[in-house]
Amino acid sequence: MSVDHKAMHKTVSNVVSNPLHNPPHNTMHRTAMSLRNLTVTFAAKSGNASYTAVKDTTLDIADGEFVSVVGPTGCGKSTLLNIAAGLLRASAGEVTVLGEPLSGINTRAGYMFQAESLMPWRSARDNVMAGLQFRGIARMDAIKRAEEWLERVGLAGFGARYPHQLSGGMRKRVALAQMLILDPKIMLMDEPFSALDVQTRQLMENELLALWETDKKSVLFITHDLEEAISLSDRVIVLSAGPATHPIGEFIIDLPRPRDVAEIRMTPRFLELHEQIWSAMKQEVLKGYQQTRNKLVA
């Protein structure tokens, strides 16, 4: 199994355009976060055998690097992210954050969820200031900073609204401000925009890039959308289909920055990268699709 695994890595390194992890914008070479030999096995529940979601996965994110992880649906991408966040404990392997081993919640990281994560009983402003409140920061100060952040994500004047009074895109902006107000070193994003319509989504992606450009945080971005991954990232990592997911390819995205996610999709280099990554991914997507179909039939 492990021999087989290595062989696959070899074929992959042929595809990689620049095998050295050296994103063009990155001036500091420190590692922000490193996942080492992670294996995640979910304990057997009555009637079900134990399930290995992630197997022997190693992944590094440099300081200020934007890394996307793509893979077929149900391959364990979110599991990987939950481990990085400290919400889930790996069965084997180690997570280090800024050089220190992670135990418990990853306090240096902000997490943006795929599903609705705002507290529905709090107004937009109170949601944004929640993290400051948990840290015991004076109320007036927290309110002031929350208002500033609402303005930065384009929601000035919407602070008094409750989540249900906001559109899906606006709720995502609130979630973004809620995360960024704590100034995390690392941003973990789990398909944050997948529920939005295409236009809103591209708008949000551009804004995310703009916010990221101002103070380059390290980003681990999970998505099943390859175009989104390429247009945002410095590096794209492709995961195999589950169970026992592991990285099968790694691609440096050398597109110039700043980028416009809608426009960059038309450039020849984008298409070239897309084709390369897709050819590596295709097999796995088909495999993943076959598995879900078998599951449905069974």
């Binding site: 919400l87 990281a109 997490y111 969820f113 994560s117 929640a130 979630a175």
Partner: peptide
């Protein structure tokens, strides 16, 4: 209670 809201609060540093 939505597990996502709960996890989000935990990530925001709630004890």
């Amino acid at each position: 209670v939505s597990p996502v809201v709960l996890n989000n609060a935990r990530m925001l540093g709630a004890s």
